[in-house]
Write a protein that binds this DNA or RNA. Structure first.
Lengths: 123, 123
DNA sequence: ATACAACCTAAACCTAAGTTGAGGTCAAGT
DNA sequence: ACTTGACCTCAACTTAGGTTTAGGTTGTAT
């Protein structure tokens, strides 16, 4: 199945200009074009894009994602580099989750205090 | 106990210019100054700062934090607004954690595939 | 006395991650 | 024929969140 940039934008909840921006930054080198020049996403492209979105949404900067993509296009001998990068990113994400959970606790404590305060002042 | 901006920066792992920037954006209205003009953080200020850092690190934009701070300085009748805002933020953070956990799974699958690929090519 | 460190302000500068605008191509429907 | 919609490029613009720079004050150690 093939998709246009507009269809992908809707599916993945990104803007069209965001997708074009990623392409310009070299994040989507696997994209084909029609004779007319329109970008074409096939299943493989969609799959790769999903990985890229995943890395982006977990805080990896675009430059770093580009390095990963460049390695991916460079064949199997780059597997060790990619593996190392993504393992490091896994650690980062695990830390992020943990810190966010601690922050969540603090937020919930604050909620409890504000609720207590509301009950007081309603008397 | 009172602290200087430099001490706070080290404690909270922020830059001094970041703290001054937050102050300029109106995030630290509780700060006192010495006669000389130096910022002074006391225990209350430190506590409030920690909440602000917590909101910031869970993705709340500075403008929104400022709204919260403004309400906080405006006395008890703003408790409902503050409560509503922070409850909404709790939901956002819960969603963020969940999405990040899903992304983590995808990253771990990718790691597994890359490791598999390395084993193959080492034969 | 003088040098150094730690603080200050205001304004200019910077980077990442996009968005917007002008001007253009093409295919489909009326 | 012509309008509409979906795509295109390239360059300029925007926004958030800071950092840097230049110039200045103050308190402490040598």
């Amino acid at each position: 199945m093939n998709y246009t940039i507009g269809q992908i934008a809707k599916m993945k909840d990104l803007s069209i200009s965001q997708l074009r921006y990623y392409d310009n930054q070299g994040l989507l080198p696997f994209l084909k074009r029609t004779e007319k020049g329109d970008r074409v996403f096939n299943e493989d492209a969609l799959n790769f894009l999903e990985l890229i979105i995943c890395l982006k949404n977990t805080g990896m900067p675009i430059k770093e994602i580009k390095q990963f993509v460049d390695w991916s296009m460079n064949g199997d001998y780059t597997t060790p580099q990619r593996l190392e990068m993504i393992k490091q990113h896994e650690i980062t994400v695990l830390q992020l989750i943990q810190e966010t959970e601690e922050n969540l606790k603090r937020i919930q404590k604050k909620i409890a205090r504000l609720e207590h305060e509301m009950n007081k002042s309603s008397n």
